[in-house]
Computed example of a mutant assay.
Amino acid sequence: MRATPESRSFRAVGVAGLLVCCTVLGLAGTDLVLPAVPGLPDYLGGSIAQAQFVLATFAAGTGIGLLLFGELGSFLDHRKMLVSSLLAYGFLSGAAAMAPNLELLIALRFLQGVAASCAAVVTPGMVRALFDEQGALRALGALGSIESLAPAIAPIIGVWLLSAYGWSASFWVTAMLAVGLSVLVAVSGRYVPAVSGNPSRLGYWLLVRNAVFQRYALSQGLSLGSLLAFVFAMPTVYVVAFGGEIQQFIVMQLLGISTYIVAANLSSRLVRRFGAERTIYGGSILAFGGSILMLAYGLLGGREPWVIWALFLPFNMGFGFRGPPGFYRSLQASDGDDARASALVILYVMLITAAATALISPFVASGLWPAALAACLLGALSLVILPLLPALPEDT
């Protein structure tokens, strides 16, 4: 019996939903764990500084994985890559849940990050192949919206898991979900598009040499990296430095993500009115201004949660304005190599976040200023790069 157009459409939506779940689970590898980080030294030994490496190594592993799977995707079936990586992610998460000390957990988190990154590389192409052009645009837009909600929702679930079942619960939940999703993708194989990339001997080297691409990619990586490095530090700042509650961090995240979503949806209107370059510059300046105010408040010894929440809003609003056009123009500058360009931009984000998180880890329990200082420096660099490297023509 032949499938009707309605049944094919319903099936495509179902497969797209499954692929979105795979991507979101990879993103949640950090946000589910965030609430448990301040207390890890109490459970596993070690120091607060070491506990921050639980976040830094996952980000670093994700960056390496993006490069690895971006290259492997040029030769291998993306369905097999996704199933294998989800299985690996599940088993590594289970191993992390049983880690007897912080050192082993840190090492496993790096491998976890590598495995978790595959979905972000392969699912956009699969989702696009499920629909026609207009349907693909709607589906990819929905994918982006759902992904932006993950950093707000996952920490709330992480807090509940931590309070109800202990620090390892988020790892066990991730393990079960990853294995379950791998099975679902495997049994749905005939309906999941068989996508593979185009091999190129030069690969990433062409993008590394492309000054226009580097302008947008590095600025995007530094801008988002400044935001993520600040967010990664704040659970420890609230709980350890301020003696507060993890719920204060959750409120900050909810406000920040809500502001980002609103700003990102307004971004296209700003581009139409002012142009992409002015929107990128304006958003970068707004985010940098927010980080300067946060640093000033931290240096003055400020610790009121409501003040931090308020200062966090322009930070997120600025990136919401500049993020979409910055990422889109990096793809435009890639000369058609969208998959590698996407992987390289996210690589920059992850490596910059990992480096900043590691560098401030010895000081993160001292208060607000180390995280705010890292955000300021990265935000300043994201602005400095823009006039130094060549831009695309405004009407491109």
Rank of each mutant, 00 (worst) to 15 (best):
G301W: 07
V212N: 03
W369N: 11
F327W: 07
L184Q: 11
A343M: 08
Y165M: 09
G367Y: 09
V20H: 01
W309D: 01
L27T: 04
L368Y: 10
P305E: 08
G323C: 14
Y281K: 07
G61N: 06
C22S: 12
L130I: 06
L299D: 09
I261Q: 04
V33D: 04
S163V: 05
L40T: 08
L313E: 07
V122R: 09
I257C: 00
V212S: 12
Y348M: 13
C376S: 14
A169K: 11
S168R: 11
L266T: 14
G290E: 05
Y281E: 02
I157C: 12
A164S: 13
S366C: 07
G203E: 04
S74E: 13
F232V: 00
G70P: 09
G323L: 13
V114E: 05
G141E: 13
G144H: 12
L104K: 12
P5G: 08
R329P: 03
A371H: 11
L27Y: 12
Y43M: 10
Q214R: 15
L347E: 05
A16Q: 00
C21T: 12
L34H: 04
S145H: 02
G61L: 05
F69Q: 03
A263F: 07
Q332W: 08
G63I: 01
A154M: 02
V13S: 05
D395L: 13
V185E: 04
D395K: 15
L388V: 09
N101V: 13
T123P: 08
P38W: 01
F58V: 01
L177Y: 14
G141A: 09
D132N: 11
L202A: 12
P324T: 15
A60P: 04
L207G: 06
V237P: 01
Y216M: 01
Y43I: 12
G290T: 08
L351N: 10
A97K: 04
A116G: 12
K80W: 15
V208K: 04
P100F: 03
L137R: 15
S200L: 00
L184E: 02
I261N: 00
M317D: 00
A229H: 06
N101F: 11
A356D: 07
S334M: 11
A341V: 04
S170E: 04
L286W: 02
A263P: 09
A371Q: 10
E394M: 09
M126L: 05
G63V: 02
S84P: 06
A375P: 03
Y89C: 05
L66H: 11
A175F: 02
M81L: 14
G73F: 10
A358N: 01
G90N: 05
